[in-house]
Amino acid sequence: MTLTNTATRQKVLGYGSALAAAACYGTLAVIGKKVVSDIAPPLVATSFSMIIGTFILAAIFQQNIRKDLVVRPALKGWIFVSLAGGAATWGVTFWFLALSQAPAIMVAPIASIHPVLSVLITLVFLRKTERVSKKTLAGALLVTFGVLLITLGGN
């Protein structure tokens, strides 16, 4: 396989994964609304679904995980993904706190700017690792504008 083919494959897999993740999160928004309205408080639902999801992930990928722990026990990687997990939990917790203080019509559009924040943080802190083009920034702004319109239109 040539270098170009490998790069194209990586791109297709990357964008395919991103779109599939967006589809999962989008469907989850519809199901999640039902769960937190009728079944359990948001923190309880998040906690239990996280525990169940972790067990399933560990069961499916136990060989890969075991191999990673033995062959590539990279402490730096562990620290940063732990921080990522903490930051995501911070996001969810503040999201619920915001919803307890303000209407969803105000919270959702403000919270939806996170892709632009990711790009801006990358621009500041990961300049050596990643190149952020004008096209990427424009695309991120367009997506955020669209998310904002859908959120407001849905309300």
């Binding site: 990687g77 990522a84 969810v92 917790t93 919270a111 990961l126 690792t129």
Partner: peptide, 25 residues
Amino acid sequence: AAALGFGGSAVLARVGLQYISPVTG
């Protein structure tokens, strides 16, 4: 603060995933 958490999480994951696989991450 919520947006900052979500936005920052992706960037921190990006750094960590240079050293470990997405599954373990």
